[in-house]
Design a protein around this nucleic acid. Structure first.
Lengths: 160, 160
DNA sequence: GCTATTAATGTTATACTATAACATACTATA
DNA sequence: TATAGTATGTTATAGTATAACATTAATAGC
């Protein structure tokens, strides 16, 4: 399991490692990891929190990059399509992938107080959905699995 | 498991039964199942397909009911809050509940071709998420579990 | 290298989804 | 029959996403 995001960690290293993997994967798959796409990924990597497209646009503007909506949406499309980022459907927002390089059906734990998001990949993540689908004769292409609630820190804060 | 929606069934009876249960539950819980709320539920029950709020508004308009956006959103809020309908986050759309009367963490199978949606409640629906959450110290309050893909009929159609 | 083709970006406009805010009317209770 | 709470009507606006078309950059074949 992988819920790093809720724990203290060396975030500079965390960002650097992700970028490195994405650069390598892009090279291997002959994808164009262009400056705009890189910048958007860097913006997402800054925080273990989902960002809306328009929040990302503001940060692009601050960097002098063209900041019309399609700029962000195109970069996000690229990142999501290639598994470098995910969309959190329950928030209409986006987050960098923290399980890079492995094929996975992501699941998310989303804190409603501090907006932190942890990505996890329980072994049986899709198993139970696969069972259900098989019984129904349904062919699954992709899954959205999100839990909203309170992260450890916010539970402590709201009790105290 | 419950994936009735993909199968032929007596849909008139299906609607009538759902309405009856919602009327009874509303009475028991002293909820006001008002004409507008009833109409919106009826609109949702017509099809085993998720409808957008503005699609619902058009149908309300056809019935001579005030059709400003808040009218639909308020009714949908009521229905969702009380478990009579669900929001499909991946589609920004709404669907009538087909597992009425039981507390449940719904899961959905959504066909990308015909837009049919089946609600299911596998026994272990939330178990695996609960495990993950527990390991992370996360407190789950509600879950979004959606699979997109092809329903049995559309698989056959796309092969033929 | 040159050119054809495809992929990416820039830009404007617009579509789609959702809620804030405030006035009015209904319902239940004391 | 006042009153508090709930529901509705209505206007305006906020937030999310994409269509469409012009321009530029990268890649492949000659």
């Amino acid at each position: 399991m992988e819920t790093l995001s809720f724990e203290k960690h060396d975030h500079r290293a965390c960002i650097a490692k992700s970028l490195e993997i994405v650069v390598r994967c892009s090279k291997e798959a002959e994808l164009q990891f262009t400056p705009t796409r890189k910048k958007v990924l860097e913006i997402l990597l800054e925080e273990h929190r989902a960002l809306g497209a328009y929040e990302i646009l503001e940060k692009l503007r601050a960097d002098g990059i063209s900041s019309q909506p399609p700029v962000a949406y195109r970069a996000l499309d690229f990142l999501v399509k290639n598994g470098f980022a995910h969309k959190i459907e329950g928030l209409n927002a986006f987050i960098a992938c923290t399980i890079l390089g492995k094929a996975h059906s992501p699941a998310f734990l989303i804190c409603r107080m501090c907006a932190a998001v942890a990505e996890s990949q329980p072994e049986n993540s899709r198993e139970y959905l696969d069972d259900t689908a098989q019984n129904a004769g349904f062919l699954i292409e992709n899954t959205v699995i999100e839990a909203q609630g309170l992260c450890p820190k916010c539970q402590r804060d709201s009790v105290g």
